[in-house]
Amino acid sequence: MNITVRVWRQKNAESKGKMVTYGVENVSEDMSFLEMLDVLNEQLTLTDDDPIAFDHDCREGICGACGVVINGQAHGPQVTTTCQLHMRSFEDGAVIDIEPWRAGAFPVIKDLVVDRGAFDRIIQAGGFISAPTGSAVEANNIPVPKDNADHAFESAACIGCGACVAACPNGSGMLFTAAKITHLGLLPQGQPERDSRVVGMVEQHDHEGFGGCTNIGECTAACPKGIPLDTISRLNRDLLGALAKGKA
C-alpha cells in the first residue's frame, strides 16, 4: 500500500514547528507503525533530509517510550501502544497525521519527542513505599486479600507513556497519578504513607502544569493498559480524607 503522512517537524524546543507531508510507498500491512516510520527515515537519510525523531524502545508495548498522536488519537485508532499498532489498521492511500503528545507539562524536544520528566517528578513526590533495602519482613507475614492484590496490579500496569495526558482535553495527568495512588493505596505496605503520598503527588502534579480533571473519561479510553477511571475517584477520596485530617 502507498500512504501519505503529515508529520509535525520541529527542530528543537525553541523553534516553531509545522506539519510536513511525505509519501511512503510499498508499505506492508504487516509493518508496525514505527517500522513504517523506520522505512520513511531510511528514505530521508538517503536523500540528505533529517530523519524524523521519535521515542521508542522495547517495541513490545511495555516500556512506555513510544507514543504519538495519530489522526488526533493518542497511539492511533487501536487501543494499544504506537509500537503495537500495525499498518493494516489503515487503508491504502490513507493520509495519516502524526503529532507529538501536546501538553504544557510535556514540552516538545524535537519532532515527535517530548519531555515527560514531569511524570518522574510526580513519583518522586510520594509515588513509592519507603522500604530501605534489607529492612523488609518475611514476605508472607502480611497477607494481602487477592482482590486487593489484583486491583493493585491492574493500576500498577501503567507504563507511564503519557497517552492519558495527550488524550485529555485538559492536559491533565490525573489518571497517571491516580494509578500510582491506587496501586500503593490498596496494599497494606502502602498505608503508612497513604495521606502524605496523595497530597504530595497531587501538589506536584499541579505544580508541573498539568490541567485539572473534569471527568470526561478520554484518558481511560486512550490508555493502552486499560487503567480504570475509578482510580481517579479513589485519588479524590484519599485526598479528601487527607485534607480532612489536616495533612495538606
Binding site: 480533571c213 471527568n215 470526561i216 473519561g217 481511560t220 479510553a221 486499560g226 480504570p228 477511571l229 475509578d230 481517579i232 475517584s233 479513589r234 479524590n236 477520596r237 479528601l240
Partner: peptide, 12 residues
C-alpha cells in the same frame, strides 16, 4: 466523581 463516588472503570 470529584467527590470520590465513581466506582466504574469507564465513564460510560
Amino acid at each position: 466523581t470529584t467527590l470520590g463516588q465513581n466506582h466504574s472503570s469507564t465513564r460510560r
